[in-house]
Nucleic acid binder design. Structure first.
Lengths: 232, 232
DNA sequence: TTATTAATTGTCAAAAAGACAATTAATAAT
DNA sequence: ATTATTAATTGTCTTTTTGACAATTAATAA
């Protein structure tokens, strides 16, 4: 059997930046690392890529183990491969960012794996280059959300326009005019208005909407220009 | 010394999709593979990631070796990691796409490494999953070029508006109205008109332009919306 | 002087974006 | 029963951008 002689071999890991939205702020899911080095320090959800799985497979497996969820929105960020990023031995890591509906997340699994949600702007220091990963993922989320309707992945099936607007404002760290926002969201044709109202936030109540899945899938790659004042 | 016991180790490679523009069509640079398996078949420019370099370093090294060029525009595409993508042993590859001015490319290096330019739409079948990589890179180039002024990387320092327009049309596989195109390009403020004319293409001649490097760097991350009819 | 050819430039209508605040629908208070 | 309160919802005007259209210009060749 032929071999690629003399070439070095490395460990390969995946690390997931899991974003959620609690109705007010962006959050990320962190775990206490279970192995040396840096055991018991806060870390992204990650694991090694197994012999018979692709990095995408590994990310999905690791996410299911830590959140109980399948079919999560997952996107490859980039590879992190500085020679000394892991002090034990050379390990490269494929960064992924994931968007989940924070309400689907099961606390029981939280307890099993010591996972915990943190405000993105008030999180503990992370191991290795994980802080860099979070920063990169944050940027990519903003970039992508300006053009494609990915933020719906962080909301429940039924949501209101005010909820959606707060999420957009949070991701882009900006205030958006209510009238212009609802006009723009409406013009995408992605939302279906429901008869039911959410009365928890006000006396008047806000109508629930859901995503039109067909249009969502059909238009996902289109450029939507969802954020005002994008031009320099 | 601590070790991550029991985890499998893999080879890691980089593969570069090198784009160029000959004034009429998009081209990619391919090499004849120099090692088994699939020796002498056409392949992307690639190599293994060495023990003391990051994947980015490796891509730059491999590109310099095959093109003689440094400081090439390089962007990480994604990782390719299906377990059996390499028949010899498990090798994951980080795909990069590169944009170069085809005129800077030295033929002498071409001969050393048997590298050759091919029309993107008329290229030989490639080894492993390299055809998939080219297809992905092609898509990403179009996506990125719709929003950011990266196509200048494929033109010489001095270029004309008609040349630029043909490049845009080629990348997006569409015809663009001359008047609207020059208005839009002009409104970016990225171009500086030179006194000199290119007389090779017509009797009247076309004015040369160059990129305003300061504005280019300052506005690179801004969304430019350079391609007409982007909306669904 | 005229013909030829590609480069360059202008106008108008439609659509989108941005700035701006009044109205509405419910509940709570009187 | 009426009024006060509060957040949700909706409308108009102006400015900017886009898209669809062809005439003019600058050079060389005939």
């Amino acid at each position: 059997m032929i071999e690629y002689s003399g070439q070095p071999h490395y460990l390969l890991a995946v690390d997931c930046i899991v974003f959620g939205f609690d109705g007010e702020h962006l959050k990320i899911l962190l775990v206490k690392r279970g192995l040396e080095p840096e055991i018991n320090k806060w870390s992204l959800i990650g694991g090694f890529v197994g012999a018979n799985e692709s990095p995408d497979d590994a990310a999905n497996r690791v996410l299911k183990k830590n959140t109980g969820l399948e079919g999560i929105y997952l996107e490859q960020l980039q590879i992190y491969g500085e020679p000394n990023r892991d002090p034990i031995e050379r390990t490269l890591s494929v960064g992924y960012f994931a968007l989940i509906d924070i309400h689907k997340y099961q606390t029981q699994i939280n307890d099993d794996y010591h996972a915990e949600w943190f405000l993105i702007n008030d999180r503990p220091k992370l191991i290795f280059d994980h802080d860099q990963m979070v920063s990169d993922a944050r940027k990519k989320l903003r970039y992508k959300a300006a053009l494609h309707p990915i933020l719906f992945e962080m909301l429940p099936k039924k949501f209101t326009i005010p909820q959606l607007q707060i999420l957009f404002e949070e991701v882009n760290d900006t205030k958006i005019d209510t009238r212009n926002f609802s006009r723009k969201i409406g013009s995408t044709g992605l939302l279906i208005k429901l008869a039911e109202k959410d009365k928890s936030g006000s006396k008047k109540g806000a109508f629930y909407f859901k995503v039109d899945k067909k249009k969502y899938n059909a238009n996902f790659q289109a450029f939507l220009n969802l954020i005002p004042n994008l031009k320099p």
